[in-house]
Amino acid sequence: MCLAIPSKVIEIKDESTVIVDTMGSKRLVSTMLLEEPAVIGDYLLIHVGYAMQKIDEKEAAESLNLFREIENKTAQ
């Protein structure tokens, strides 16, 4: 139920609607719940037709790298 799917913004329709690409399929989603306007190229988390939040790519990278470093040290 609380599933939310990361999708890439590929077109801005109007101030509260964008088209996203979700692993190859395109759909309209509402951005009225987003705190900042979406721009093309953003990754959004989509739930029941609405964007919930932008995905922070820097944090995504950090969380992967952080554990990789720690694990490398521990696993040695």
Partner: peptide
């Protein structure tokens, strides 16, 4: 590292 596609996430 950076994300290049939805798949990668």
């Amino acid at each position: 590292y950076s994300i290049h596609s939805t798949m990668e996430i």
